[in-house]
Design a protein around this nucleic acid. Sequence first.
DNA 1: CAGATGACTTGAGCATAATGGG
DNA 2: CCCATTATGCTCAAGTCATCTG
Length: 571
Amino acid sequence: MMLLLTLPGSGGVWEEGKHAENGQKWRSLEHKGPLFPPEYEPLPSSVSFLYNGTPVILRPATEEVATFYAKMLDHEFTTKEVFQNNFFTDWKEVMTETERQLISDLSQCDFSNIHKYFVEKTEEKRNMTKEEKQVLKEEANKLTEEYGYCLLDGHREKIGNFRVEPPGLFRGRGEHPKMGKLKKRVQPEDVIINCSKDVKIPEPPPGHRWKKVQHDNTVTWLASWVENIHGHIKYIMLNPSSKLKGEKDWQKYETARKLKLSVDSIRSEYQSAWTSCEMKQRQYGVALYFIDKLALRAGNEKDDDTADTVGCCSLRVEHINLHRHLDSLDYVVEFDFLGKDSIRYYNKVPVEKQVYKNLKLFMNSKNPDDDLFDRISTTYLNKKLNEAMPGLTAKVFRTFNASTTLQEQLNQLTTGQCTWVSWPILAYNRANRAVAILCNHQRAAPKTFEKSMQLLQEKIKKKQEEVEKAKKELKQAKKEHKQLPSEVLVQKMEKTVKRLLEQLKKLQLLETDRNENKVIALGTSKLNYLDPRISVAWCKKNNVPVEKIYNKTQRAKFAWAIDMADENFQF
DNA sequence: CAGATGACTTGAGCATAATGGG
DNA sequence: CCCATTATGCTCAAGTCATCTG
């Protein structure tokens, strides 16, 4: 599917991107290849690894893997059995025969000297003088300047990740069965370079050669290699600020906006599927209902060697509980499962009676670990969706519902007598938060949360006292000047009270804002789900500088939207 | 047509830089 | 101005979905 994206009157660079017929992503591509991490530097001889209490000298390759473990010593996951076993198995594979003979028990390994050495090293680095830090910074800038950019169709574009990932110990999210495995060092011989034919081919590091150099302009990556933990391909790609990525992003939101036109008919279609005589259709109807109503992810099947997480289509019977009545509500579904990144999804949702009845039916005579939607797959779901509207897939609903929610919330919070109107940024955050909650974007509560809340509360108390004091003084002054109520002093005091009250109100709103934000992450939805044109238009309409909403990076990513959206844009 | 592969988006957490209050 | 707190950028894992393959 190719959307032809044109915007009347906008002119400029964003209309150029029309060459994507037959899947061509670029005409010319030139870059310097990825930057490799520095070679391993052996430990000074004074830092020793102990086995059974006695120092053992390891060959550099073995020692390097030992340092990976040593560096992680104060992380909780090094205490996990899976982590230790995976590490030890992979470490032994790196050892020489002699080393392997000796080191047969991880619990006899003492990495504490190595750990201490690295702690000291970070400390040293922290204590470097400003000048030394400056030198380091300049060196880093030089590398970014050299490797961080490429030339795509004649435009200099920022690369997203120009560094090859360094070796280390794999730490997946959640209870990952492969945690602790050795993530091997990537060599130039593992790397495929993608660039145009007529251009200077990047030099491999001295003494090395590339795995392959190809010239495929139907893909957007500059380099790739296969990672050894799962055998997945890793890519070097462009930064979100690039034209290539920007146009793709724009297209994504245009697809979501197109859903607006057919969402009513799609909704009534899946609702009628709830009473279909075919079980498969009923499952389709209920699954899509969840995706639409709750913004669940599609839920593809996963490999066994990954953490046990689910999305909509992979929900199992054990992940929901049905309540005929709950908290004065009827037909409540209680969801409790681990989603992407092993983030818990917990929600109690009242549903239509027919949905409830169907869920009972789907669960009938199944085991807890059986699939809830056993007759459908994400492939089937997406095939049906694509028939309903070209380009429509499950994830479009997330974008659609997120952006629609933002638009509605902004319209609501910034009109009328609502208290948020006076502080539009807080209103915006609140709208953003409604979306983040919908999408279940969570974060760990900040370490200093309680402390900073306490501080804020003290501030509020102080301000309250100030208000009281000012009010009293005003009263007193009024009394004293009863015969002269228009006295300048009284007016001034009235102003002070008013100002203090405003400040108090703002602090209290800030407190609400912080509290509501404790475990909610706004960044992900802002970056991936909210049509930036909604925000840009809102800024213009409310005279809020766009810088208050988007920082420099975000403005670069959303340059296309800032460029084209006027204040009348509606999602 | 199921399963594998490939390309690309989405995601949380962490290191570092920037900021602002004492 | 300095230190602590917050904001930003980076990292790399983990999803989605289209296409390939046998």
